[in-house]
Simulated scan of single mutants.
Amino acid sequence: MRIDLLTLFPAMCEAVLSESIIGRARKAGFVTIACHDIRAFSQNKHRHVDDYPYGGGAGMVMQPDPIFDCFADLCGRLHTRPRLVYLTPQGRRFDQDTALRFSKLDNLCLLCGHYEGVDERVLEEIVDEEISLGDFVLTGGELPALCVADAVARLLPGVLAGEESWQEESIASGLLEYPQYTRPPVYHGRTVPEVLLGGHHAQIEDFRRKAALARTRARRPDLLETAALTEADGAFLQALHAAQAENGAE
């Protein structure tokens, strides 16, 4: 798979994309990621890519021509048209299902906006989809684009040690992840649950499943509405609810 970022800050993006798992995946050839400087396509001698909005208002708007030209140049060199996704607070909320959908593409291009956003004609003519990380505002689209690139890349074959590595993680499984422990077995008087030290895999799996259910119910009960739950899961959640109600926790 190939992921391209259209950005005003390619060095910033490269610094992140060259580290950790995604950096190793790039070196190993499991994913190709390239950053393209929108400013390089400015026709302004000062390399400006923004201007005042028609109709007045605060801030500046990214001009359409540098973005159009940058994307057209990429399409020409790839001999194909990637799916172009614009990162914006006005977009649809990004989630694990979207990351999985993106990971099945051959080419994904992420457009990083800045200032008050991009000229609407860019969205109308070349953007295929608008994505948001949440209901908050950032300085630009680079950080959301990096999050999307990381979430997508880790789903690709070979990037992680095993497929189960991402399938068991929070959200990917439909539940929040169970608590994790490592050495030492006792720290500040707090001990690792005995079941995790016994080596009985079935008991460990049962403990982790119940811990994930309990944590999801406490922190993100909305996830339980769509999670794939077994009869045993339902019985555990009912027992948990009853116990907490009896203890006055609810």
Results as ranks from 00 to 15, higher is better:
170 S>G: 09
6 L>S: 00
9 F>H: 04
33 I>N: 07
19 E>C: 09
127 V>Q: 06
117 G>W: 08
49 V>H: 10
173 S>T: 09
211 A>D: 12
187 Y>Q: 06
103 S>Q: 00
193 P>W: 09
71 F>N: 07
155 L>V: 05
238 Q>R: 09
135 D>Y: 03
67 I>W: 06
61 V>K: 02
99 A>Q: 11
14 E>S: 06
50 D>P: 02
55 G>T: 03
12 M>F: 12
22 I>Q: 02
94 F>Y: 12
112 C>M: 04
173 S>K: 02
189 G>D: 15
239 A>I: 01
249 A>M: 05
35 C>E: 12
207 F>A: 10
243 A>T: 10
24 R>H: 14
164 E>S: 12
44 N>P: 01
113 G>Y: 09
198 G>C: 12
45 K>N: 14
37 D>W: 04
51 D>V: 03
248 G>M: 06
175 L>P: 03
243 A>Q: 12
10 P>A: 15
166 W>P: 00
166 W>R: 00
175 L>A: 12
49 V>C: 10
90 Q>N: 11
38 I>W: 03
173 S>E: 13
231 E>W: 01
220 R>I: 02
34 A>G: 08
24 R>P: 01
154 R>Q: 09
201 H>F: 12
54 Y>L: 11
117 G>D: 08
42 S>T: 06
112 C>S: 06
76 G>L: 05
224 L>T: 04
167 Q>E: 14
118 V>L: 10
14 E>G: 11
147 C>R: 01
141 G>W: 05
207 F>W: 15
223 L>A: 09
49 V>A: 13
108 L>S: 11
75 C>W: 05
77 R>E: 15
157 P>S: 15
166 W>Q: 05
234 G>P: 00
226 T>G: 00
25 A>G: 06
104 K>F: 03
216 T>K: 04
240 L>Y: 08
9 F>R: 02
93 R>Y: 01
37 D>P: 00
196 L>G: 13
192 V>C: 02
83 R>H: 13
111 L>Y: 06
190 R>F: 09
228 A>H: 12
231 E>C: 02
231 E>Y: 03
21 I>C: 09
249 A>F: 12
139 T>I: 10
224 L>P: 01
80 T>A: 15
128 D>I: 04
16 V>P: 00
64 P>L: 13
34 A>N: 14
72 A>L: 06
50 D>F: 07
122 V>E: 11
180 Q>M: 12
207 F>E: 13
165 S>Y: 07
189 G>L: 08
119 D>T: 03
29 G>E: 15
9 F>P: 00
64 P>W: 13
170 S>F: 08
236 F>S: 09
161 A>L: 07
188 H>F: 11
9 F>M: 05
212 A>R: 04
105 L>D: 15
108 L>Y: 05
76 G>V: 02
162 G>L: 05
162 G>D: 15
34 A>S: 14
31 V>I: 09
7 T>C: 03
20 S>R: 04
57 G>M: 05
240 L>Q: 13
130 E>G: 02
220 R>K: 08
18 S>Y: 04
68 F>E: 11
173 S>N: 07
136 F>G: 07
